[in-house]
Design a protein around this nucleic acid. Structure first.
Lengths: 173, 173
DNA sequence: CGGCTTCTTGAAAAGTATCAAATATAGTGG
DNA sequence: CCACTATATTTGATACTTTTCAAGAAGCCG
């Protein structure tokens, strides 16, 4: 079980390492050039391709504090079936991420917040700049939208020790 | 070997059928609600998850005339390794599609045209409306941008029998 | 030749980005 | 714990891009 602090790198494109399962937190994927390549949250697998190539295709960075587990050390060793299952989940996630880059800014940010909340009433957000990259907006726009949601009472800041207070929110909707 | 006409449905979310390999043409994926979920081009596999669930997660529709082959009938039967390979390719594709929804309109459309051209000097585009959906732009914006690229000489319309003349282009860059 | 769909174009409105600056927060060393 | 510094967020005003709405042109099909 590995705990990674917010902002820390998890793996490097081209480098070696295990495939990870995200147990908690959110992770940003980037390509070799550093461009945004996706997002992983609890339940997702990162770096599945290392089982084939021995190298990561994407870099991964913790957006919030994360807990990771070595996927190959899970009780059930990877089989064709479990790989398919991971694949299928990744496809759905990819479709969700596409949706976070379409439509109006408000809906994109709200969509990301909901995705990160993952059904819970409490959500830990990445920095505004990361939200901006995921939604293809500018940091100022993201800030305005989150402040707007706060003022409408849809989100309320929550103080949690060790977490930047602009990143923890209780959701009301 | 199956040839699908432009606009025709290839499979339905929730329905049954084989996993397909796209040999030629471009295919749009949609979720059950009809929302855009991705794009497949030559070399990509569609509906890989049917091997696991027996049902398609997404619907697929031919954007241009397509040629498909039953993936399980390929010389090499799917193994954990080949599935990983398909998975890895799908992840890269997903990252590319995210990029097509970020940045300025001109770059998005140009990016999609390049992706569809796949290195060739000739490209068959989907209808403007489909390009708009993939890039999260409006059909009018897409039309203006393509006309602009034509006027700059970056693309030239090519007449091909049986293909709408606004969809076949020769690329100059 | 119609009738229908797709594409193109223009003008105005809306939504975001940009730029600049203030404020707030986190981190650090006394 | 406090002052100080660096980083992150917020806010306002303006510029720019894209959407929207409306209409016309072009292409396809029978």
């Amino acid at each position: 079980m590995n705990v990674i602090a917010a902002g820390e790198a998890i793996c490097q494109a081209g480098g070696a390492g295990p495939a990870w399962r995200v147990l908690r937190g959110s992770v940003k994927l980037s390509d070799e050039a550093g461009g945004y390549a996706g997002l992983a949250i609890a339940g997702d697998i990162i770096g599945c391709e290392t089982l084939l190539f021995g190298r990561y295709t994407f870099s991964a960075q913790a957006l919030t504090e994360c807990e990771l587990a070595d996927w190959q050390k899970e009780p059930v060793a990877p089989t064709a079936e479990s790989i398919l299952s991971v694949f299928s989940k990744a496809q759905k996630r990819a479709a969700t991420l596409l949706a976070l880059r379409g439509g109006q800014a408000l809906e994109r940010v709200r969509g990301l917040v909901r995705l990160l909340a993952d059904g819970a009433g409490l959500v830990l957000l990445p920095p505004r700049q990361e939200i901006a990259e995921i939604t293809d907006l500018r940091i100022e726009t993201v800030s305005r939208i989150i402040k707007g949601l706060e003022k409408e009472g849809q989100m309320t800041q929550v103080r949690i020790d060790g977490i930047h207070h602009t990143r923890a929110y209780r959701l009301s909707v």
